[in-house]
Design a protein around this nucleic acid. Structure first.
Lengths: 216, 216
DNA sequence: CGATTTCTGCACCATCTGGTTACTTTTCTG
DNA sequence: CAGAAAAGTAACCAGATGGTGCAGAAATCG
């Protein structure tokens, strides 16, 4: 018998599958990013999501599938944001600078992304392999960068022969490495790599690196 | 208490504490690199090392300390190799190229290093924090690169104002990122990133990137 | 209303895992 | 050679962890 004399009456959101699922995914993103696939605890995810562990298995079936879904969402999120940059309307050098800046800021605002990707590579990309949408997104992204390069060569500001995939990798690398290794880096190099000044300086350095790399 | 017979005689010990310890560390390096700190199994390490699990706890006390020792060894190994490069005797541009090449090849030959560092950063460098020798090694390394930069500026081949720490980070980054993300990269970019040609191409690209970055 | 389906959560389990106790075997020293 | 010390082993344990069974509540539908 439930008590009928409940004064607060928490009638709000009694049953919302979509919201629960979203909360689980958000909690999973954080927990997986914080502790890796093996280190993450399903119970912790359930608790953080204010959901029951049973729901995780109801919606996703296993810890593994939950990880895969989380990862897929993370990739789709950054690729979607990249597409919205509208670099085609910018002058080539400005477009490239904007991309470097965006990549850096995205990593800064979404630190989980980097850690999730690291985890996935620890597992030899076994989850990404199962997803086929991601390739499409990547292909579009490479094409976007290639278009900038072509325009730059045409207008004579860029040198010819720069491979767009290599450039993409390098743009990601110089931001990604700095941030993923910020903990060991701060100790070994004896400086706070996350201080505002250090971050600004690194971004400037990265823009310089990329522009010099493609310069005619 | 001194042995009257020759002290360096080969004792043909079937029991060899040093060798066992070394085997454990080698096995630990592989297991931690393959599965991360949380994913690694102490039993597996014992088995791979052809030692008993009890020995691990006898020599190291805990999984955590074993990881820390493994990591410390890995760092000391690469820093020692770097010091042996003798870059001071080379012309500045050649010295830098050699360093880029060395870094790349070290990562390629010692894939465990990258994964161990990733694991350590997942744990916010809590183990590196406890080691104080590593800072000394790093300091010496930065000084080495700085010396190259200074010489290059003096002879007019490098531009002034390049920060040696940023340069170090960048040299590491462009190799590290490519290799640590080779699994997801191979799928998303739809090309075998570990094919010989792809590796050669990446090394060339990296050398170009660094030389252009510092060029006058 | 009442039957059916979808969602929620408590309690529980089988297994795994880091760590330990107790013991045997080999080596070294006096 | 004795016997202490070091090196090695097997069996075991307590707690944690991914995963479930089942009962019941909330929505949906006839």
């Amino acid at each position: 018998m439930t008590d009928p004399a409940d004064p607060t009456e928490p009638k709000t959101r009694t049953r919302d599958a979509g919201a629960t699922k979203a909360r689980i995914l958000e909690a999973a993103k954080r927990e997986f990013a914080k502790n890796g696939l093996a280190g993450a605890r399903v119970d912790v995810i359930a608790e953080k999501a204010k959901a029951n562990k049973r729901m995780i298995y109801h919606y996703f079936g296993s810890k593994e599938v939950l990880f895969q879904t989380t990862l897929e969402n993370a990739y789709i999120d950054i690729r979607t944001a990249e597409q919205k940059l509208n670099l085609g309307h910018l002058e080539p050098a400005a477009a490239l600078e904007r991309l470097v800046r965006f990549t850096w800021e995205y990593y800064l605002k979404n630190p989980e992304f980097i850690t999730l990707v690291n985890s996935e590579n620890l597992h030899r990309a076994k989850h990404v392999k199962k997803s086929d949408v991601l390739q499409t997104y990547s292909r579009r992204f490479v094409a976007m960068v290639n278009e900038i390069l072509v325009r730059g060569v045409e207008t004579g500001v860029f040198r010819p022969g720069v491979d767009p995939v290599q450039l993409n990798i390098t743009i990601a690398a110089i931001g990604y490495y700095y941030l993923t290794n910020r903990f060991t880096g701060s100790i070994l190099f004896e400086k706070d790599m996350m201080a505002k000044q250090a971050l600004d300086e690194r971004l400037r350095f990265n823009i310089e690196t990329i522009l010099r790399l493609v310069a005619a």
